[in-house]
Every structure is written in structure tokens, then in C-alpha cells.
């Protein structure tokens, strides 16, 4: 359980790279990772959750922000990679209470093998939260015909001055992108790693330098053997 409180004009950036044991190729063993993470923002404060989830057999995790103070900002940047029999169900809650509050959600899910990967989130604009803004982008990349990618966003808006945008896409890894890389002499495995890292760039860029390098390697390792 993690609780963050950002008082007036304070800023917290909380970055996680999660790489618990995911179980073996048949889905035996592995860590069950159930986490509660929440944050409270006072006026002009900012909480930014960044996570890279590659491990655990089952992950349930929804880092949240209560944007209580006026002009407070909540951010959620997430990459979740699942392979073999892993399950990741992750997302965020952004509760807008203050005026001019702003939230951004960028979620990238990559599912390979027999895994299931879900984004589940809530954006709630309360009555008094005038001029609140939210932008959400949830993308899923599928790399196996028996894997699943799911998107369950909830948007609740009770204020007419709010501006909410949600976008989600689900697609297979680009055959033409793979071909292009391979035509330049790059192996399929490496091409996938390149493309996936590029796909997650927006989130990886949010991580501190040393974390980002680690995270990139983890992405490649997690997807090893997912080809074909």
C-alpha cells in the first residue's frame, strides 16, 4: 500500500518497475501482486505515477489521484507487458474535485503468449470541478493469437465545463514494420524489441534515466520467445 499526499504546490513523481517472478512457461507459480496506491493533491500540487509492469503471475494495481485542490494535476503513465500465462489488470482512478484540475493517462499494454492484459480506469469529474480536463490514451498491442487485450474505461462527468478525451486502440504488431526492420538486416526478435520499445516511448520517457535503461531491457526479456 502506498499513499502519497502532495500539499500546496508540491510535486511527487513515483516510479515503479515491477519484475516479480511471473511463473513458468506453463503458468505454474509466480507472485500474486495486489497493490493499493493512492494519492491526494492539494492546490497546484502534482502527482505523477509511472509504472512498468513486466513481472508477477497476476497483477491488480490502480494507482489513483484525488485532485482535491484547484489547479492540481494527476498523471498516470503505464506499460504492462504480459507473456505466457500472466494476467495484468491495471489502470488508474482520477477523481476531479478542484477547479481547473487536469489529468493525463497514458497506458500501453502488450500481450503475448496466453496472457490477458486489461486496462481498467475511472475518470470522475465532480459537480464543483469546473474547467477540469482529462486526456486518456490506452493502447494495446497483441502478439499471440491466444492472448487477450481489454479496455474498460469509465468516464463520469457532472460538470459542463469539463473537457474529456479518451482514445483506445488495439492492434497486432505491424507486419510491415517488422518487414521493414528485417529488410535492413535486423533479426525478428530484435525488431520486435525495437518496435515495442518505440511503442512504449511516451511512458518510458517519463522514467528516470537509470530506470528507463532497466525497463527497456526488461521489456525485451519479458517478450523473449513470444515470436512465432
Amino acid at each position: 500500500m502506498v499513499e502519497l499526499i502532495a500539499l500546496n504546490k508540491a510535486e511527487i513523481k513515483y516510479s515503479t518497475v515491477q519484475n516479480w517472478y511471473p511463473g513458468d512457461k506453463e503458468g505454474k507459480g509466480g507472485v500474486f501482486n495486489f497493490v493499493t496506491k493512492r494519492g491526494l493533491c492539494e492546490a497546484h500540487a502534482k502527482i505523477s505515477w509511472t509504472q512498468v509492469e513486466t513481472g508477477s503471475a497476476v497483477t491488480w494495481k490502480y494507482p489513483s489521484c484525488i485532485l482535491k485542490g484547484d489547479y492540481s494535476v494527476g498523471e498516470f503513465f503505464s506499460v504492462a507487458v504480459t507473456n505466457n500465462f500472466q494476467q495484468a489488470d491495471t489502470g488508474t482512478k482520477m477523481v476531479h474535485l478542484g477547479k481547473h484540475t487536469k489529468s493525463t493517462i497514458i497506458s500501453k499494454g502488450i500481450s503475448a503468449g496466453h496472457s490477458q492484459n486489461s486496462y481498467r480506469g475511472l475518470v470522475q469529474i465532480q459537480k464543483q470541478a469546473a474547467h477540469a480536463r482529462n486526456f486518456s490514451q490506452c493502447d494495446s498491442l497483441l502478439m499471440g493469437s491466444v492472448s487477450g487485450a481489454h479496455t474498460f474505461p469509465s468516464i463520469e462527468c457532472k460538470n459542463a465545463s469539463a473537457q474529456i478525451e479518451h482514445e483506445a486502440t488495439t492492434s497486432k504488431i505491424g507486419e510491415d514494420q517488422l518487414f521493414y526492420c528485417q529488410q535492413r538486416g535486423i533479426s525478428e526478435e530484435k525488431a520486435i524489441s525495437l518496435i515495442v520499445n518505440g511503442y512504449c516511448k511516451e511512458v518510458l520517457n517519463q522514467l528516470p534515466m537509470e530506470f528507463a535503461v532497466e525497463a527497456q531491457k526488461l521489456l525485451s526479456i519479458s517478450l523473449e520467445g513470444s515470436v512465432g
Partner: peptide, 15 residues
């Protein structure tokens, strides 16, 4: 909501 169990798909939603 999107619930997808096949891999060769193009699905998107916007709100």
C-alpha cells in the same frame, strides 16, 4: 469497452 481475444484485429474507440 474493448474485450479482445484474437490477435489480428484493428479495434479502436474514442470518447
Amino acid at each position: 469497452e474493448l474485450e479482445i481475444y484474437a490477435d489480428d484485429v484493428k479495434c479502436s474507440h474514442g470518447s
